[in-house]
Design a protein around this nucleic acid. Sequence first.
DNA 1: GCGATCGTCAACCAGATGGTTGAATATGGG
DNA 2: CCCATATTCAACCATCTGGTTGACGATCGC
Lengths: 112, 112
Amino acid sequence: MTHPLDATFAALADPTRRMILSMLLEDDMAVTDVAAPFEMSLAAISKHLHVLAEAGLISQEKRGRVKWCKLEPDALREASVWMQGFGQFEPVNLDAFERFLVMELTSPDTDP
Amino acid sequence: MTHPLDATFAALADPTRRMILSMLLEDDMAVTDVAAPFEMSLAAISKHLHVLAEAGLISQEKRGRVKWCKLEPDALREASVWMQGFGQFEPVNLDAFERFLVMELTSPDTDP
DNA sequence: GCGATCGTCAACCAGATGGTTGAATATGGG
DNA sequence: CCCATATTCAACCATCTGGTTGACGATCGC
């Protein structure tokens, strides 16, 4: 997996990771707090965060015991630009985004 | 893999598949013609096209012996909307898109 | 009808992915 | 110093992925 877009899209292909990104939209979070709402182990979430960090979608900074996770929205720009080339570029619609976020957050993320 | 966005992003995570989409931007193509520029087998390309079709990114219509592949850019809209929520991205820049396409097309897609 | 062309299917393989558990490494608090 | 907290590491496992090859079913041209 050499092209940066490979890593970006692969990272976005997992619902747990997309959920994490949505959570980080609100505010920076510690790893443990990121993991709290999920049913999987902390180690699994740690791996997911590693994937997101490798893709440049988040950054992580350790302060004391706590590793803080921060959204890096710039990493989405290349992917966004790539995708936009394929459609009729309607203006960005944040209301639609809110709807999708709600859909994501209300749909079962782990296993029903 | 249940959420539609899973399939969309997973399909986009492969450079061969992104290349195919770029090719279909130009015009509809038969499976054999899609496969021509790649070094992998026809069966492999057939699988890639299946993945793209499952994700709704292309449609396929068989006319006679030939199966025509058509880009379905609408399928990118949900993914695009989802992504756009993460940043204030500058207005869509088609020149930038061209640059990325060129990068994709000039960078080795199979194995250097 | 026959042979060539178009495309998929099936079986197989190596390697990546997503999860688990248990041990290990810091760091902070009292 | 000791214990609890925060996070990762290592080993392991099942499943998915992306590729191969060879056989197969359709369809076209003649």
